[in-house]
Simulated assay, not measured.
Amino acid sequence: MSWIPFKIGQPKKQIVSKTVERDFEREYEKLQKLEDQTKKLHKDMKKSTEADLAMSKAAVKISADLLSNPLCEQDQAFLDSMTALDTAMKRMDSFNQEKVNQIQKTVIDPLKKYSGVFPSLNMAVKRREQALQDYKRLQAKVEKYEEKEKTGPIMVKLHQAREELRPVKEDFEVKNKQLLDEMPKFYHSRIDYFQPSFEALIRAQVVYFTEMYNIFSELTDQIDQAGLTDEQRERETEAKLSELRALSIVADD
Rank of each mutant, 00 (worst) to 15 (best):
K136F: 11
Q130T: 07
M123Y: 08
I154M: 08
M92F: 12
I108E: 00
K112D: 07
L158K: 13
D86T: 08
T210M: 04
L179H: 07
A84Y: 04
I202K: 12
F78K: 07
P196Q: 05
K136L: 10
K105C: 08
Q104S: 15
Q102E: 13
K136N: 09
L138P: 07
E146W: 05
F186L: 09
H159G: 15
Y193C: 00
K144R: 10
K185Q: 13
K157A: 14
G116L: 06
I202A: 11
P196R: 05
Q104T: 10
T87K: 14
L179P: 11
V168N: 01
K157E: 06
I154D: 00
K175G: 04
P153M: 15
D134S: 10
E143M: 09
D109I: 07
K148V: 13
E173I: 05
L79T: 04
E163S: 03
Q139I: 08
R162S: 11
S197Q: 00
E129S: 10
Y193A: 01
I103D: 00
R190M: 06
F78L: 11
T83Q: 15
S120Q: 05
A124Y: 07
M155R: 13
N101S: 15
V100E: 07
F118N: 01
R128Y: 00
E146Y: 07
M183D: 01
Y187H: 06
M82N: 13
R137P: 00
D192S: 14
K112P: 00
R128N: 03
Y208Q: 14
S197E: 04
I202V: 13
Q130G: 06
R203H: 13
